[in-house]
Amino acid sequence: MLNWFGTFYAVASVGMLTGFRHTRKPGVLVPLLPLTFIFGYQVDMAYGNKLLRIKHEAENIIKFESELLDLPMNLPTLSTIDMARQVQHDRLLMHSAEPPLYY
């Protein structure tokens, strides 16, 4: 990803600088600022320690904040899934205009 974005960043930068040289309008250089931040992020991800920081943060969440990993109402059991399917099926039968073809 860094190779692709780095090439795009270089070509876009040269284009913006050339456009600024010809028009002398500073608005031509405005897209260079966010592109620089994105390029810096890609470099940090590739050559910096971004992946190591992400790994350490994930380990801290698993170790010290495991409640963030739980589903809001706990894991559904097979019986609760079957019960919900049966309720949905019963509601469909009660509200349908025609009798069902299967049973």
Rank of each mutant, 00 (worst) to 15 (best):
T77V: 05
L52W: 04
K50G: 02
P26W: 12
L78D: 15
L93G: 01
K50E: 06
L29G: 05
S66V: 04
V87E: 13
D44A: 12
M94N: 07
L78Q: 13
A10I: 14
S79M: 11
Y47F: 11
H22I: 10
Y103K: 14
L52N: 10
L32K: 03
Q86Y: 09
I62R: 13
M73N: 15
G15W: 14
Y41L: 10
L33R: 06
F8M: 10
K50F: 07
N3Q: 11
N3G: 06
L17A: 14
A10E: 10
E98Q: 15
H56K: 15
L52E: 15
I81D: 03
Y103W: 07
L68Q: 15
H89Y: 11
V30W: 14
A97V: 11
P76L: 08
A12C: 10
R24P: 00
R91F: 04
L32Y: 03
Y103G: 12
P26E: 05
L17M: 14
R53D: 05
V11W: 05
L75N: 14
I81C: 08
L51M: 10
G15F: 09
M73F: 14
P31A: 07
P34R: 06
V14K: 04
Y103P: 02
T77R: 10
M73V: 12
I54G: 00
N60I: 08
P31N: 08
W4T: 01
A46F: 00
T18N: 09
G40K: 01
T80F: 03
Q88K: 09
T23W: 04
R85E: 13
S96A: 15
S79C: 06
L68T: 04
L2R: 02
L92N: 02
L69W: 01
V43I: 15
D82P: 00
A46Y: 00
A46G: 00
A10D: 05
H89G: 00
R91N: 08
S79E: 15
L52D: 15
K25S: 07
G27E: 14
V30C: 06
L101P: 04
L101K: 09
T36R: 10
Y47Q: 04
Y41E: 06
Y9L: 05
E65S: 11
H56R: 13
S66A: 14
K25V: 01
L29W: 03
